[in-house]
Design a protein around this nucleic acid. Structure first.
Length: 851
DNA sequence: GGGAAAC
DNA sequence: GTTTCCCAACGCCGC
DNA sequence: GCGGCG
């Protein structure tokens, strides 16, 4: 024991090649083949940071340093947990609870240090994706323990691990702070923070809330509750207070706005005075008696006379507000689960703070709540950036976000300085009936909606009774009457109340509906009719799962997609969109006909990422031991091992179950594997180039192909570039076809040197577009049209028409969430006319200078 | 994610 | 039993 | 020329 700090790490030798840090032991390290941004410098910086830290003042001599920390990296809006242990002693082994290391539920690391029994180190909390924007956070748990303490976990529990560094400026610009983060259960954490762009933000953005009494340095910029802020006015505490209400807006406005989570609960104001706490709804009803635990927690804060403003919620398992759970909590008189999320402090300690800038009120509020009852939580600020922020909030299954203008004051009315941005859900439903009109309404009352279960049954999904014009109402009614049938198409049929007076319809009509949320029973809430749809077979209408929403558990068939059991269906494959493995499988199931048309008959390479796109990724070209139902293993003369062929839904979903994210196809067919039947040119731009340059370059290539007399088809790559596909009759073998593709690339590079390069190196590619012709050799493959890409947000490679090139705003125009809408809105196949008829002629070769 | 080799 | 390794292929680039 | 990298 008590060997030098950093020993474990030093023994590992080489730095990992990926941007994450695997826990490293003396048995070696694991270099990943992950195709992510280079992170060697990143790694070195962090290593340097730990290596160059000065020992903390006040540490007794002879004590072993045994810091344990958890590294969480969050760059470019990708959340990444990883664990690194640095222990005095030789690390023997370690364990993270089974499952993805991204699992926010991971709370405990087991560590095994030589000469020590198995020790556990707990850490608490998690940081949801999107919380910190671009930047990095290290969740840090640090302390010392006596060498005599055989069990560091016991020492930790006994409080012998001392924290004693706060606000310490560390090398490399890191700062140690103590803070509470959303999702942390209100618990404070030690955080090491570092800004990528310090100028863009202020330290206060990080919610630094408290200094420990034993803080050595303690110069963190803490709010000073006792100082009287500008504009604060001494005032008696009013008996009543009406809250500031937010204005609903559709898009994030310009300007300086501070965003918070929109809580799906009840607004509640708290009045605290003389050891008494009372709770009021926004209409002034006294709910103190309904919320004894909250009231007690507020009393325990022992506040000087104050009004606090917040919202009560019941968090679901993932920490998100759950409106129904809140209602249930009231119904059952179980208010103990309720949490009060506080976001404002209009009065405090005899001061009227309403005119004080928002940030100051909130800083003061946060300091009041720091380290107090878990039922009282500070509503943390979300990172700047409205549009993306809303998207990520929605992807996390939140109801929306609230924006407050920087510096705004607290007013007792609806304010334009407080805005709410809602995540609206929208999807198609099958119309399975309608209810009788009520009152002055003619035609029908509401449409009875359904979605298909995985089993194929049409499940009742609630009703929509608003959103149609008078004309629509009549037209729809007339149309529906022709589809009337005596029995409900739903299975099981809706309850008596829903069925009363209903007219049942053959499940043929589809409509688009916008709604606020799915209820726990799987019905739409606050649904609005947005129009009929007619572009999809009714059978394809299924519930579109909001990302990261596992859905009701325990239902039969719940774990299966297309008959394939999906293990770890709740695993989040992509943190940015919150897409789970099951959602990915369902996505592939939903586009199976499109994708299978691209894959069938071709040898494939699979890009697999069993632990999600942030984990290790690898290609697989040989069927090997791959146990996928319906997968073809095809022996060929070209490869010793059988290749992979997929031509069924089962095999497709089976591949997804095995962690496949991307499907890459060869430019040939098993039937003529030595003769390619297409050329694929991958236009791969310098990432810094604007999209307009990409559009221009694509046009230029199309012009060249037109001149040669070759028809070509476009698809987005799902990344930065475009793929141009030239279908061929499978006449020639790989070599001449590759030479032809190379000829095109070199022709472009030669004649349009400002736009194109034909060689791969990034060196002379600055500001240009690399025409990647290398995908046209034997054994090479290109991501298939309709394949997802293993990148943040899970974009999809999508065929487009030449006309559409002008209209899209990037090669990642569609992703797993938005592709359905595109397919639904598509009148004609963007690749209409695609046929393998073209030949490469000598005349073409001459034109290219290949002769 | 899972088979198989290496501990 | 437990842990690690493997799962493409190619051209570039730096040693 | 070899190996790591993208």
């Amino acid at each position: 024991m008590a060997t030098a700090r950093g020993k474990v790490r030093d023994k590992t030798g080489t730095a990992p090649a990926e941007d994450s840090f695997r826990l490293q032991t003396e048995t070696g390290h694991k270099a990943s083949r992950s195709k992510t941004e280079p992170a060697l410098a990143e790694y070195r910086r962090k290593r340097d940071f730990t290596a160059t830290r000065e020992p903390a003042a006040g540490r007794a001599r002879g004590q072993a340093m045994a810091p344990l920390y958890v590294v969480q990296k969050h760059a470019a809006r990708r959340l990444h947990y990883d664990f690194r242990l640095e222990l005095g002693g030789t690390l023997k082994s370690w364990a993270v609870p089974k499952g993805p290391s991204l699992d926010p539920a991971v709370r405990r690391l087991a560590v095994h240090v030589e000469d020590h029994p198995l020790a556990y180190a707990d850490f608490e909390g998690s940081i949801p994706a999107g919380h910190y924007g671009a930047g990095e956070v290290i969740v840090w748990d640090r302390g010392v323990w006596e060498a005599a303490d055989a069990d560091p976990a016991a020492a930790y529990r006994a409080g012998k691990l001392k924290f004693h560094l706060l606000g310490e400026k560390l090398s490399g610009g890191w700062t140690l702070v103590r803070s509470r983060l959303p999702g942390s259960g209100g618990k404070e954490q030690w955080l090491l923070i570092k800004e990528n762009d310090a100028a863009a933000r202020q330290a206060a953005d990080y919610d630094i809330v408290a200094a420990r009494p034993d803080s050595v340095l303690g110069h963190a910029p803490l709010p000073e509750p006792d100082a009287k802020p500008d504009k604060a006015v001494a005032a008696a505490l009013p008996a009543r207070l009406a809250p500031t209400l937010a204005t609903l807006v559709a898009t994030p406005p310009a300007g300086d706005w501070r965003y918070e989570v929109k809580f799906d609960g009840y607004r509640l104001l708290a009045r605290v005075e003389d050891g008494e706490a009372r709770l009021f709804t926004r209409n002034g009803l006294d709910w103190t008696a309904k919320l004894p635990e909250i009231a007690a927690a507020l009393r325990a804060l022992d506040l000087a006379p104050s009004w606090l403003d917040g919202e009560i919620i019941v968090p679901d398992a993932a920490g998100r507000p759950d409106f129904q759970a809140l209602q249930n909590a009231f119904e059952r008189g179980r208010s103990a689960d309720i949490v009060y999320c506080l976001f404002d402090l209009p009065y405090h300690a005899g001061l009227d703070l309403r005119a004080v800038p928002l940030e100051q009120r909130r800083a003061r509020l946060e300091s009041l709540l720091a380290g107090k009852d878990d039922r009282l939580r500070f509503s943390t600020e979300l990172p700047a950036g409205g549009g993306d922020l809303l998207r990520s909030a929605c992807a996390l299954g939140l109801e929306g976000i609230i924006g407050k203008r920087a510096g705004s004051s607290y007013v007792s009315r609806r304010s334009a300085d407080w805005i709410k941005l809602k995540c609206k859900l929208r999807q198609e439903f099958v119309i399975g009936g309608y209810s009788a009109p009520q009152g002055g309404r003619s035609g029908f009352g509401a449409l009875l909606l359904g979605v298909h279960e995985a089993s194929g049954a049409l499940r009742y999904a609630g009703r929509v009774g608003t959103g149609f014009s008078e004309d629509q109402l009549h037209a729809l009614h007339a149309r529906m009457q022709r589809l009337a049938q005596p029995t409900p198409p739903f299975s099981p049929p809706p309850g008596r109340q829903e069925s009363a007076g209903a007219t049942w319809l053959a499940p043929e009509l589809l409509c688009e509906v916008e709604f606020a949320a799915w209820t726990r029973e799987g019905l739409v809430r606050q649904a609005v009719f947005r129009g009929l749809r007619a572009d999809k077979p009714a059978q394809e209408i299924v519930r579109e799962r909001p990302a990261a929403n596992p859905g009701p558990a325990g239902k039969p068939g719940q774990g299966k997609v297309a008959g394939i059991a999906i293990s770890h269906g709740e695993r989040v494959i992509d943190a940015e969109s919150g897409t789970t493995k099951r959602a990915l499988a369902e996505f592939y199931d939903s586009i199976a006909p499109h994708l299978l048309a691209q894959l069938a008959g071709r040898p494939l390479s699979l890009l697999r990422a069993p632990e999600g796109i942030a984990g290790e990724q690898f290609f697989q070209r040989h069927a090997e031991t791959l146990a996928i139902p319906g997968l073809h293993r095809i022996a060929t003369v070209t490869d010793d091992e059988p290749l992979i062929g997929i031509d069924s839904r089962r095999a497709l979903i089976g591949a997804v179950q095995m962690g496949t994210v991307e499907f890459h196809s060869w430019n040939t067919d098993f039937r003529h594997i030595e003769r390619p039947d297409r050329i694929v040119l991958d236009l791969d731009p310098d990432p810094a180039l604007p999209w307009a340059r990409m559009v221009e370059a694509t046009h230029l290539v199309l012009v060249l192909l037109d001149e040669l007399g070759l028809a070509a088809y476009l698809k987005t790559s799902g990344g930065k570039g475009m793929h141009i596909v030239v279908p061929l009759a499978a006449r020639q073998e790989w070599e001449p076809v590759k030479a032809f593709a190379k000829g095109i690339a070199q022709h472009l590079a030669r004649h349009l040197p400002r736009q194109f390069v034909a060689s791969m190196g990034p060196k002379n590619r600055v500001g240009k577009i690399f025409v990647d012709y290398l995908r046209n050799q034997q054994g090479a493959s290109t991501v298939a049209a309709y394949s997802v890409r293993a990148r943040p947000g899970l974009p999809v490679s999508v065929p487009i028409s030449r006309d559409e090139l002008e209209t899209i705003d990037g090669a990642a125009a569609w992703n797993v969430h938005t592709l359905a809408a595109r397919l639904a809105g598509l009148a004609t196949d963007p690749w209409v006319g695609y046929a393998h008829r073209q030949r490469l002629t000598d005349a073409m070769r001459q034109s290219l200078g290949l002769a």
